[in-house]
């Protein structure tokens, strides 16, 4: 009686069938990596042997800026896609399907979890495309220490958790709201701060102290750093593994907390 499966299948069918939605979703990662990779690349001002030493310091040892930010761009893309999970809930209420769901013997939470799961799934092909695009562009992503299954697992785990975290937050907000404009307003209010008050685009060394300090509490930083660490270093030292475990652990703990909170709040009420 849960309804989770048929509702998730419905979301994915709608996604695959909507060509605009589908293709823009696939082209978006290419744009992102091309734009972010060149727009924020401050290392281009550094030249000569001392310049490349400074660049290497700013980029935590990454061979170039694209390699440094790919984790940040992946995370930000996950964040932006996930924030729109809530709008689908408002559409369902406006266009009628919600009325059907609410009078069926399904769990209220499965209505919301179907949105969350499908938005997580929608992000995965974007991740693949973005990594491939980053690898193919000139002076792009370099796996200095090889590309291993560990890199893949860390990337997938971090992005899935980030997508889960933000789509559940925005879905719960949407269950309490009836107005599309309000949810867009909230998305617009928080998207850029979440992106820039984090280590997604710049390392802590490049930030004002206060900004760097706040950024360490942003889950976007945790995901960006988790991916970055494995990409730059390849095989990690034991102290790097501890740090890696902290980032992924924090993401997992936050996701688990939000899972319970979402379940509790949504089972209690979805506005009709």
């Amino acid at each position: 009686m849960s309804g989770l499966w048929p509702l998730t299948v419905r979301e994915l069918k709608k996604w695959v069938r909507n060509p605009t939605f589908f293709f823009t979703g696939l082209i978006q990662p290419i744009f992102w990596i091309a734009l972010f990779g060149s727009a924020f690349d401050i290392t281009k001002f550094l030249s000569g042997p001392s310049g490349s030493a400074a660049a290497s310091f700013l980029l935590d040892g990454a061979p170039n800026y694209i390699t440094y930010i790919v984790g940040g761009v992946l995370t930000t893309m996950g964040l932006f896609t996930a924030m729109f999970a809530g709008t689908q809930i408002i559409f369902d209420r406006r266009l009628g399907p919600m009325g059907r769901f609410l009078s069926s013997p399904i769990r209220r939470s499965s209505i919301v979890f179907s949105k969350i799961i499908s938005s997580v799934i929608r992000i995965l092909p974007q991740v693949v495309i973005l990594v491939v695009a980053a690898y193919l562009i000139p002076n792009g992503l370099k796996f200095v220490h090889g590309f291993t299954i560990v890199d893949v697992l860390v990337m997938a785990t971090a992005i899935i958790l980030i997508a889960f975290i933000f789509s559940s937050i925005f879905s719960v907000i949407a269950t309490r709201m009836t107005n599309m404009q309000s949810i867009f307003g909230i998305v617009n209010l928080v998207n850029l701060p979440l992106m820039f008050v984090s280590y997604a685009m710049f390392s802590k060394a490049m930030m004002a102290d206060w900004l760097g300090n706040i950024a360490q509490y942003n889950p976007v930083s945790w995901s960006a750093e988790a991916i970055r660490t494995v990409i730059i270093n390849g095989s990690l030292t034991s102290s790097q593994w501890v740090q890696e475990g902290r980032w992924l652990g924090a993401l997992a703990a936050l996701a688990a907390g939000l899972l319970l909170l979402t379940y509790y709040l949504v089972e209690k009420e979805i506005r009709d």
């Binding site: 309804g3 069918k13 709608k14 266009l95 399907p97 059907r100 009078s103 013997p105």
Partner: peptide
């Protein structure tokens, strides 16, 4: 909810699915 069938005043079918897919989905709810 398990006992009843409902035909609300407003449309509830998903416009992006076929008629058959809509009914099939609801049958899975039950």
């Amino acid at each position: 909810r398990r006992l009843i069938g409902v035909v609300p005043q407003d449309f509830t079918a998903d416009e992006d699915l076929t008629g058959r897919e809509n009914i099939m989905m609801v049958s899975q709810f039950y």
